[in-house]
């Protein structure tokens, strides 16, 4: 699956594409929503490592505007539930992710992103 937890970690790795290669931009996506178990301990631990702007931007590309622009300092249950939904319950099933720098297209098929490159593209 490509959920936003994974999207927040992926970057373009085409040879020579070393800057502005994150976050990848979603293109022509089909999404599915699936409930996942809420785990506040995981979210509190993961939160400091999230690239926040990338997450907010990606969620908006998928039509979800529930996250605040700035990461809140108070981690109440409402916020953690919103974060949980955005990170773990929105599944990108089909479509692609495009590098903002070199425009390389990484296809997503049946929920699996294809990050393979041809030999001459590998950095």
């Amino acid at each position: 699956m490509v959920r936003l937890i994974t999207h927040n970690l992926l970057a373009c790795h085409v040879r020579g594409c070393n800057s502005n290669n994150f976050p990848l931009q979603f293109q022509d996506v089909q999404i599915g929503l699936r409930e996942a178990e809420f785990n506040p301990d995981f979210l509190r631990g993961f939160l400091p490592k999230i690239e926040w702007n990338a997450l907010v931007g990606a969620a908006r590309q998928l039509g979800d505007t529930s996250l605040p622009e700035e990461q809140p300092s108070m981690l109440d249950d409402d916020f953690l539930k919103t974060l949980h939904h955005v990170l773990l319950e929105i599944h990108v099933e089909e479509g692609a992710m495009v590098c903002p720098n070199c425009k390389h297209v990484y296809p997503i098929s049946n929920g699996i992103p294809n990050m393979l490159l041809a030999e001459h593209e590998i950095g």
């Binding site: 699956m1 937890i5 992926l10 790795h13 992103p113």
Partner: peptide, 22 residues
Amino acid sequence: QHYREVVLGNVLDFPWRYGAFD
């Protein structure tokens, strides 16, 4: 019986932000 996050890729490549994983 749960959805997992999986990525098609080669272990020689590096399609990630540096140091992104714990």
